[in-house]
Design a protein around this nucleic acid. Structure first.
Length: 495
RNA sequence: GUUCCCAUCGUCUAGUGGCCCAGGACAUCGCCCUUUCACGGCGACGACGGGGGUUCAAAUCCCCCUGGGAACGCCA
């Protein structure tokens, strides 16, 4: 056993999820902060799987957890798949270590076996509630003599509990909150080893953080109340505790707890909603942290460069999806069309566009016209389907406004002129001047030609510049759509 | 109930005693650009929870109240 404290210069942090469910944005934020902290200090980022609750263990959850972390781009230096000097990184494979250490504590008289069953514990709690006392274990088995305890351990089920001091105070420093103090009288003797032989979080966490030489613990602030007992544990082992940095929780839009009910909550959900991983990292890093000025758009490098744990706020923050959407749009503006190719193609396929219509050259043109007016990946499909299929339906309100006999006549004129246009003159400039000239001849505003054309070609009243999208669609498509629309206008006229 | 944490616009936040009758961003609402939608530009709306101190001076420090959150498990 090594009892040396961690070599102080090296930053070693860990993200230690429990594979019991999907990676939620709160967990993702914790992972991101750890990762940024490690990268900023050229330290080590460790992934450790805390799978000590075998009743809630979920193989699928573990898989999706790793997948989501990969997707976010949070690469770990030690952990599953990566290996490292402190392998294994699954707690379920480190049981011997925990037992060994539990024994050390028992030998030091810093821990004791407890034979109370769930039923008795429940009763104690009820009584405490009734008396308006703080709930917690009543230390019933704390003073059983060693010989008796040894004897009973052979017959009965038991857990190992930590002996917390009965009086005095335990204090620790939270790096963003400062000194936090607890009266020891309010701390109960927590379970270290469960009756099934698995360690609790507290035990496994402290033992592993020590052995893996973790220098800073960045975790959710729901752990603050457990920290004094962790400190007592460290003291019992005569170990130096790591530095504690408790991150504020993330709240849902309205302010309550973030949950499935209040919008999407898992990282996978946001991936499916069409957000980029780098945007999630950027956005989540800004929840409870800021670079000290007004910068909000920050790519990975900049985040790493500027991340400073001193700027972490103790205040819980609400997740604002509108702002996330805006930021996603900002990234769309900066990314090249090529960037979206592989991202968008599957979405079009899903929407029923055939593979043969999705050649890269054409798709690239489409993306170029759509990306700056999109905020989520799904927008490419939502607002761009007409690039691949003739519109079958037309926006009702817009059709009322723009489809009538006058516009049918105008579309007819346009059709005729476009028809006469040689293929190599089907260009942005030529089309534009064609429309402008025709409008002049007819003594109407060009808008009266443009809007009906747009609706005829797209089925929707908004989108990229008309002449640009016409060029992309090509002469043949344009003419066919114009003609069929003219027919539709006339046939649907009730008069 | 007990213990602990937190408190600036609706939301994310800047602000560490004077530069703040509080700055930026998202959202909302106008206007401009414009064939539409976006983008962009300009502007409007909008906050230091309340009360006491400390100080020449407080959003900033202290106390109380109020409000919100978390923990109180053989879950993490």
């Amino acid at each position: 056993m090594t009892t040396h404290s961690t070599s102080q210069s090296a930053v070693r942090v860990r993200f230690a999820p429990s594979p019991t469910g999907y990676l939620h944005v709160g967990g993702a934020r914790t992972a991101i902060f750890n990762w940024l902290f490690a990268r900023h200090h050229q330290g080590t980022f460790i992934l450790r799987i805390e799978d000590t609750d075998r009743s809630r263990y979920d193989e699928e959850a573990l898989k999706s957890l790793l997948e989501d972390l990969h997707w976010l781009g949070l690469s770990w230096d030690e952990g599953p798949d990566a290996g490292g000097p402190f392998t294994p990184y699954y707690q379920s494979e480190r049981l011997a270590l925990y037992h060994e250490h539990a024994q050390i504590l028992i030998d030091k008289d810093a821990a004791y076996p407890c034979f109370c069953d769930a039923e008795r514990l429940e009763k104690v709690r009820e009584q405490q509630q009734l008396n308006k006392q703080q709930t917690g274990y009543d230390k019933h088995c704390r003073n059983i003599s060693k010989p008796e305890a040894l004897e009973r351990m052979k017959q009965e089920k038991y857990v190992i509990r930590l002996k917390c001091p009965m009086d005095g105070v335990t204090q620790f420093k939270d790096e963003i909150r400062g000194k936090i103090e607890y009266q020891n009288s309010t701390l109960d003797d927590l379970v270290l080893i469960k009756s099934d032989g698995y360690p609790t979080y507290h035990m496994a966490n402290v033992v592993d953080d020590h052995h893996m030489q973790i220098s800073h613990v960045l975790r959710g602030d729901e752990w603050i109340a457990s920290t004094p007992r962790h400190v007592i544990l460290y003291n019992a082992f005569a170990w130096t505790p790591p530095k504690f940095v408790h991150l504020p929780v993330i709240l849902a839009e309205g302010g309550g707890k973030l949950s499935k009910r209040k919008g999407a909550a898992s990282v996978g959900d946001y991936r499916e909603l069409g957000y980029l991983p780098e945007v999630m990292v950027n956005f989540l890093s800004l929840l409870g942290w800021n670079p000290g000025d007004d910068t909000e758009y920050m790519e990975r490098d900049e985040l790493i460069r500027r991340f400073d744990s001193k700027q972490i706020s103790p205040k819980s923050a609400a997740f604002d999806e509108k702002k996330l959407e805006w930021l996603n749009g900002q990234y769309f503006l900066k990314r090249s069309p090529e960037f979206f190719l592989a991202l968008v193609k599957p979405l079009y396929l899903e929407a029923g566009i055939s593979e043969s219509d999705l050649n890269d050259a054409y798709l690239l043109q489409v993306i170029t016209l759509l990306k700056d007016r999109s905020r989520r990946l799904g927008d490419f499909v939502l607002n761009g389907k007409f690039f691949f299929v003739d519109p079958i339906e037309f926006e009702v309100e817009a059709a009322k406004k723009h489809f009538h006999e006058d516009s049918a006549k105008r579309l007819e004129k346009i059709s005729e002129q476009i028809d006469k246009l040689p293929e190599n003159e089907f260009t942005l400039d030529k089309l534009e001047s064609l429309y402008r000239q025709l409008a002049e001849e007819l003594q109407i505003k060009a808008a009266l030609l443009i809007h009906p054309t747009r609706l005829a070609l797209c089925g929707i009243s908004f989108g990229p510049g008309l002449f640009e999208l016409m060029v992309v669609l090509g002469k043949e498509n344009v003419l066919r759509r114009l003609k069929s629309t003219i027919l539709k206008i006339r046939s649907s006229k009730p008069q």
